[in-house]
Amino acid sequence: MAGVSKTLEIRTSPHILSGYSVDTIMFNVVLALLPVTAFAVYAFGLPALLTLTVATVSCLATEELATRVAGKASALGDWSAAITGLLYGLTLPPGLPLWMVAVGGIVSVGLGKTLFGGLGANPFNPALVGRAFLQAAFPVSMTSWTPAFGAERFYTLPASTLTAPLTKPSYHDALSGATPLARWKFDGQLTEVSDLAFGAIPGSTGETGALLILLGGVYLVARNMMSWRIPVAILATVACTSGILYWLDPNAYPSPLFMLFSGGLMLGAVFMATDMVSSPMTNAGCVVYGALIGLLVVVIRLWGGMPEGVMYAILLGNAVTPHIDNLIRPTIYGARPAEEMS
């Protein structure tokens, strides 16, 4: 079976060749992620590099193993497992023990993707499934952050990174830092928006370079490989909702700019929520989906128990996607509206 990869496709008309295949798009997503990844390694140094490598390798290995067990042809060539691994690695705290990174990578692809039938069949974004699993399994490690731009970041590792498998990591208090959202939630302190935009803050490896994430998004939209409606709807909803709340009571709620640039919102809105498999198919559906995620982000951040809610908001949005697709259907080509017919 392994040799058979070309299939005869039979589809009804009309036929329009877009010029893009799955692997071209996926490859371009990897390209768009490169600046963010480079910045992550620059800001957090060696631990971030190791985290990203282990994340990607564990996802690729799981994908390969799963396709072999299922007797299918290797699917590494379509780049999707690489993207899952890279995205998943970008959502992790840089000092996370590498064995936990590997566990989460196995869960992302194993539980989030191959159990549902592989690429195209996963109801949830696999990268976020892996992260959600880690968040529930190892909540302390997943909320221990190392500050950005440490002086020795390129040649030293935090003690936690190389923790032996299945054992508890140790954290030095001196190294830990709270994310801007946690500082706001638990201490009521706001971080400067300029620090947020340029990544001089603790956080997940890939969420701190907000402007570079936007750059990658703009590239993908310009090449027509990503629905611009989803990120725009998410960011606009977050900005509007938090703007209204800020206008009502500036002391109790943070400013919309802080909401936009803190935490994983940019990374989630641009690269996670736009996952083609787990987001709606129609344009109107995408707007509804984005607005729902944006609303959930604001609700979880402001009134929830945890400081950050982008991951859960997107996973919940993924869960609603089939219903959105069910309610908002595209017009069938050639069909006329009902009143014209009668």
Binding site: A136, A137, F138, P139, S141, T163, L166, T167, P169
Partner: peptide, 20 residues
């Protein structure tokens, strides 16, 4: 069962662990 440095997988005693 393990040395005290064992890292518990808290998700397993949460409801979702039952499903897994």
């Amino acid at each position: 069962l393990f040395h005290e440095s064992f890292q518990p997988w808290i998700v397993m005693i949460l409801p979702s662990g039952g499903f897994f």
